[in-house]
Design a binder for these strands. Structure first.
Lengths: 153, 153
DNA sequence: TATTGTTATACTCTATAACTATA
DNA sequence: TATAGTTATAGAGTATAACAATA
């Protein structure tokens, strides 16, 4: 129940955000992917060649957790680990051609998801919503494009 | 990373919503409560006398999960189970005076949380945001005041 | 000795299903 | 037999810490 009546923006944000995340998870499940895997794939595509430590740092998760995520994507040939010859401890992460193709599919899924979620808003209203949310995100210190839900406490 | 550039409303909503939920969880943790407990307490206050089955139905969780949540609140004297004399299988849930007092504290915490989250928006903008989010929530079939994140798949 | 990536372990949360008491 | 509530069990997800390879 709303603790305030009417419910405050924060409650609405959390509720609608959780709904949006759940619906998105359903959609990418059809591609046999989880949201954290999607976030990781997108990050590797945007910043190729980084080490697992660096990626874990950006995503705000322990490096040990990254191992399984990278394994899942690598097993399917969507990303690859390349050993750095200068320092053979480092594994640079790169997206593959197959990974890029899947990323395109994810993009289509994301747009469909966006449309379904905001279908009750016209174009101007969607832009207003995006602008307000972007302002909050920046003010609250959220890194653009990084979902804080994958971050540890 | 945003799969679209700029990120769509849905991604922003999920990200800011997760952030809002995490910050709220931190705040109520200071009252020794978890967000599901807060949601349950608020629901019992708003609709007293319902059975656990009914409450579980509204919250979208299995009745077995409700047991632990009610136990935690009942052990602290915030709610109580009252057996129905006509059908002794049913436990009607009621909030206590102590529960009401805690609910007041939660309300204050929620307002502070709301202010902190939306501090980059002026009053008009906050109202605009609330209106747009309310529209999406209604269109997407979210029950007012019920956080879908506690719902099972 | 320090660091990268990995594996092992343990813990939290939750759903499913068995169980009890009432009807 | 059916239903409300409870307890038991099991599974998913994740953090912490130990470990092996490399520096």
């Amino acid at each position: 129940m709303p603790l305030e009546n009417p419910p405050g923006s924060a409650f609405l944000l959390a509720a609608v955000g959780a709904h949006a995340a759940a619906r998105f998870a359903e959609r990418v499940a059809a591609l046999d992917l989880t949201p954290p895997q999607v976030g990781l794939l997108g990050l590797i595509a945007a910043s190729p060649g980084q080490s697992q430590q660096q990626v874990a740092q950006v995503l705000g998760m322990p490096p040990s957790r990254l191992v399984g995520l990278v394994d899942a994507l690598a097993d399917r040939g969507l990303v690859e680990r390349r050993r750095n010859p200068d320092d053979r401890r480092l594994h640079a992460l790169h997206i593959t051609e197959a990974g890029r193709a899947v990323l395109d599919e994810i993009g289509a899924v994301g747009r469909a998801h966006d449309d379904a979620l905001c279908r009750s808003l016209d174009a101007d209203e969607r832009e207003t919503l995006r602008a307000l949310l972007s302002r909050i995100a920046a003010d609250q210190g959220l890194r653009p494009g990084v979902h804080p839900g994958y971050r540890s406490v």
